[in-house]
Amino acid sequence: MKTVDLGRRDYLPVFEAMKRFNDSRSADTEDELWVVEHNPVFTQGLAGKAEHLLDAADIPVVQIDRGGQITYHGPGQLVVYTMIDFKRRKTSVRHIVSALENSIIATLAAYGIASAADPQRPGVYVDSKKIASLGLRIKNGSVYHGLALNVNMDLTPFTHINPCGYAGLQMTQIADLVSPCPTLADVAGKLTALLNKNLAAEAV
């Protein structure tokens, strides 16, 4: 699976590019992982409720087509978009979600951080604090959007929302748990290698 490093980008142009990629792909289009760091933005999913945005401050809010509620993206957060033809892979959305969660858990374990998925809600947690979020869109038998892993960022904007629709949900990041904090590039290398491995595995 091809990995594309987009660097640091505004959210909206990348969102539009994801939709174009998915709409124009054919049965032979190679699956891709897009690695990106976003400038500050709140993204509101299809089921998003206005009351979960407590205070936008000066941060733009973008309505998007993934599942789920509102979340925040900003510098120091690793975002990986999974541009996957799941029909061709003969897999399931549940398998893809598990592959994403397990890849994040294994990446964190490489830095000595114990984390786990929660069967009641998507994402990865360290104790009761959320360290990574997931959100996917299924269209034309393919998947886009993906995951966001907090590495070394300002977590303050998360206090301006109910993250993923959960009032009072606390966030954490690698920098709060490991010193010195690894670079975004180092974490991205580990995570994309694991995603390639886990997404290629047969669904059980």
Rank of each mutant, 00 (worst) to 15 (best):
H145M: 05
V151D: 07
I59G: 11
Y81G: 03
A167F: 12
T107N: 08
I113K: 04
K87I: 13
H38S: 08
T82L: 15
V97C: 10
T43K: 06
N102Y: 11
A109H: 08
V126R: 04
W34F: 08
G45A: 12
L78G: 04
A50C: 07
D58W: 11
K130I: 00
P40D: 08
K129Q: 12
A56S: 14
H95P: 07
P60S: 06
N162D: 14
D85F: 02
R94W: 09
D65Y: 00
L53M: 14
S92H: 13
L54H: 11
P75F: 05
Q63E: 14
G48V: 06
R137G: 01
G146T: 12
F86H: 15
G135K: 03
K90Y: 11
G48E: 01
R88Y: 10
L100F: 10
V35C: 09
T43D: 14
Y111A: 05
S115R: 06
V124A: 08
N140F: 02
I131R: 03
H73C: 04
D154Q: 03
R94K: 15
A99L: 12
D58Y: 05
H145N: 06
P119S: 06
D118K: 00
G123E: 04
Y144V: 07
S142V: 02
A117L: 07
P163G: 05
S133D: 07
R137V: 00
G135A: 01
F42S: 07
S115A: 15
K49H: 12
H73K: 03
G146S: 13
L136F: 15
L136H: 00
P60A: 10
A47D: 11
Q63K: 14
G74S: 08
S92N: 06
T82D: 11
L136S: 02
S103M: 09
A56E: 14
V79E: 13
K130W: 10
G67Q: 09
A50R: 10
G76D: 00
P75D: 10
I131M: 02
P122E: 07
L149A: 01
S98F: 14
N39K: 13
G68F: 01
H52E: 08
F158I: 07
Q44W: 14
A110M: 14
R89G: 03
T91H: 03
A167C: 07
V35Q: 03
I161H: 02
N152Q: 04
S92C: 10
S98V: 03
A47H: 10
V93R: 00
S115W: 00
L155V: 07
